[in-house]
């Protein structure tokens, strides 16, 4: 995704640099029969910038005969025809958004492979972040409460570490480097605990 973002940035940059208006003008002016398309928002586009933007926009359009693939990904003839149409419209100076709206007026919202971020659709865009935030808040609360717990433990360290050593003896992975220094008196206690748990 990030690469696509960069691609879009490059495309826009190239678009600013090469906005020579006369290039495709005579072609595009004559071709558009469909009044829904209106007047191009941007300047005509060509070369690598056009290819990059075509890729970008077609990856947002759902291939109508495939299962959940974008027009950019699908090898079917319909998808290729749609990608050609995207390229043609972009070359004529229509903006990416205009192209998407045009496809939407023909096919319905279904044709957009990612839902438009407006109205009820905002749910699908916002809910994951809300979920993550609530989750993070719960984790933060837990960590805070355990900080109090740990402080509490520190004041009564002997019995707590004993019970900890029992837990550790059941560990699946034994990791001497991560364990605190073993002091001899504790080691004796550990030994006793192990004897007790022995079947």
């Amino acid at each position: 995704m990030a690469t696509r973002g960069v691609g879009l940035g490059l495309a826009l940059l190239a678009l600013l640099l090469t906005s020579a208006p006369a290039l495709v003008a005579q072609d595009s002016a004559a071709v558009e029969l469909d009044p829904r398309l209106g007047v191009p928002d941007d300047a005509p586009l060509s070369g690598p910038a056009l290819e990059a933007l075509t890729q970008e926009i077609s990856s947002l359009i759902r291939c109508p005969v495939c299962q959940g693939l974008s027009v950019a990904d699908s090898p079917t003839t319909s998808a290729v025809a749609m990608q050609d149409e995207v390229r043609r419209l972009l070359a004529a100076g229509y903006s990416g958004d205009q192209v998407l709206v045009y496809f939407e007026t023909s096919y319905g919202e279904f044709i957009r492979l990612e839902p438009k971020a407006q109205g009820f659709n905002l749910v699908v865009w916002i809910a994951p972040f809300a979920f993550l935030l609530i989750g993070a808040a719960l984790v933060a609360m837990r960590v805070r409460s355990s900080r109090a717990q740990l402080a509490d433990n520190a004041s009564r360290s002997a019995p707590r570490s004993a019970s900890q050593s029992q837990e550790e003896s059941q560990d699946v992975d034994h990791d001497p480097h991560n364990e605190p220094e073993r002091d001899p008196s504790l080691e004796a206690y550990r030994q006793r605990v192990r004897e007790e748990v022995k079947p």
Binding site: D34, S78, A81, M82, D84, E85, F103, S106, G108, I111
Partner: peptide, 10 residues
């Protein structure tokens, strides 16, 4: 070019 089919949303 399939342009008309696209315009009709086929």
């Amino acid at each position: 070019t399939g342009r008309t089919a696209i315009a009709f949303g086929v």
